Simulated assay, not measured.
Amino acid sequence: MTHPIDDLVTTFYRAFSGDTDLLETVVTPDWEDIPLAPGQGPGPQGAVPIISGLAEAISGLEIVVLDVVDGRGSDGDGTIATRCEIRGVHTGALMGVPGSAREIAIALHEFHEIADGRIRRTWHLEDWFGFIRRSQDVDAP
């Protein structure tokens, strides 16, 4: 099943916002998440505990897509890049930081390799340092 790029991206980030059943509809069975989080297993099922942990630590978890750069070829295969924010209220422990009850926005940048209408590989970079710094700074925005 192939997805238009907007549907593919939207569904992928809805899965990472807590609707984990959607993940297997947009990624390949051998999907690679690079780098794996500590303790994360391979494939889509390996990401489920990570997503659940984020949802427990961030109330109202939402990943907002700010930009998509589509580098796919005419066959629909290739790479897309996304610039996103992880948003919500930090209510539980995350990255060793206790819940602060503050609204957060964590920068997220990803490259997704698309093959046959599904995401085969994802490289990601989150601004965890900025999250930790802001969570400890009472005057931070």
Results as ranks from 00 to 15, higher is better:
Ser59Gly: 15
Pro44Met: 03
Asp21Gly: 14
Pro35Gly: 14
Leu23Asp: 02
Ala55Thr: 14
Ala15Pro: 01
Gly39Gln: 11
Ala37Thr: 01
Trp31Cys: 04
Pro42Tyr: 05
Glu62Pro: 09
Val27Trp: 00
Gly60Glu: 09
Glu24Asp: 11
Ile58Ser: 03
Ser17Pro: 05
Glu56Ile: 11
Phe12Ser: 01
Ile58Lys: 13
Gln45Asp: 11
Thr25Lys: 06
Gln45Pro: 12
Thr28His: 06
Gly53Tyr: 00
Val48Ala: 04
Pro49Ser: 06
Ala37Leu: 04
Ser17Arg: 07
Thr25Val: 08
Val26Ile: 06
Ser17Ile: 03
Gln40Ala: 07
Thr25Ser: 12
Ala37Met: 04
Leu61Ile: 07
Ile58Arg: 11
Gly18Tyr: 12
Thr10Trp: 06
Leu8Lys: 02
Pro42Ile: 08
Gly46Met: 11
Ile51Ala: 08
Tyr13Ser: 10
Gly18Ser: 10
Glu24His: 02
Gly46Ala: 12
Ala37Glu: 08
Thr28Ala: 09
Gly18Cys: 10
Thr25Leu: 06
Ile58Pro: 01
Asp21Cys: 05
Ala37Cys: 05
Glu62Tyr: 09
Pro38Tyr: 13
Ala37Gln: 07
Asp33Arg: 03
Asp33Phe: 06
Gly46Pro: 11
Leu36Gln: 15
Gly46Asn: 14
Pro38Asp: 15
Tyr13His: 12
Leu54Gln: 05
Ala15Ile: 03
Pro44Val: 02
Thr20Tyr: 03
Asp21His: 08
Thr28Gly: 07
Pro44Gln: 05
Trp31Leu: 04
Thr20Asp: 04
Val27Pro: 00
Pro44Gly: 14
Glu62Ser: 15
Gly60Tyr: 08
Gly53Ile: 00
Ser17Met: 10
Leu36Cys: 13
Ala57Met: 14
Leu66Glu: 15
Gly43Tyr: 04
Leu8Thr: 03
Glu24Trp: 01
Gly46Phe: 05
Val64Ser: 10
Ser59Ile: 13
Leu8Trp: 01
Ala47Arg: 00
Asp19Glu: 15
